[in-house]
């Protein structure tokens, strides 16, 4: 069951990457990989702040579509995490799995 849920979360993240890539110049587009860097406060890797907003909104919608649950990814809980959940695709999927614990897959 957990594996199915994990797969759906990754699919949702990749769909959100597809969505946000449409807004980026070719050279800046994100790869669909678990190690892809999503956001780095220094601005060195991944998305800029507008890109992150677009990504978060797209991902929340994809999670509703794929997991049938509503999550709020842009709230203080995310900011309070030791490791920023938006660091990589992997950290984000772990965070979403924790947020949706107890919800059906």
């Amino acid at each position: 069951m957990e594996k199915i849920k994990q797969k759906k979360i990754i699919e949702a993240v990749f769909s959100a990457i597809d969505e946000v890539n449409q807004l980026l110049p070719t050279a800046q587009r994100l790869k669909k990989s678990v190690n892809t860097a999503l956001f780095d406060k220094s601005g060195k890797d991944g998305l800029d702040s507008l890109g992150l907003i677009n990504f978060v909104i797209a991902l929340e919608q994809e999670i509703v579509k794929k997991l049938k649950v509503t999550v709020a990814l842009a709230d203080e809980r995310a900011m309070l995490q030791k490791i920023n959940p938006f660091t990589t695709v992997k950290t984000l999927t772990v965070y979403i799995a924790r947020l949706t614990e107890g919800d059906g897959s």
Binding site: L50, I53, V56, I57, E60, Q61, A74
Partner: peptide, 17 residues
């Protein structure tokens, strides 16, 4: 989903993509 209040509050974006 034409207008998402979150897009507005976080980015002053009036309409969805």
């Amino acid at each position: 989903d034409a207008c998402n209040p979150k897009l507005w509050y976080m980015g002053k974006i009036a309409f969805s993509n």
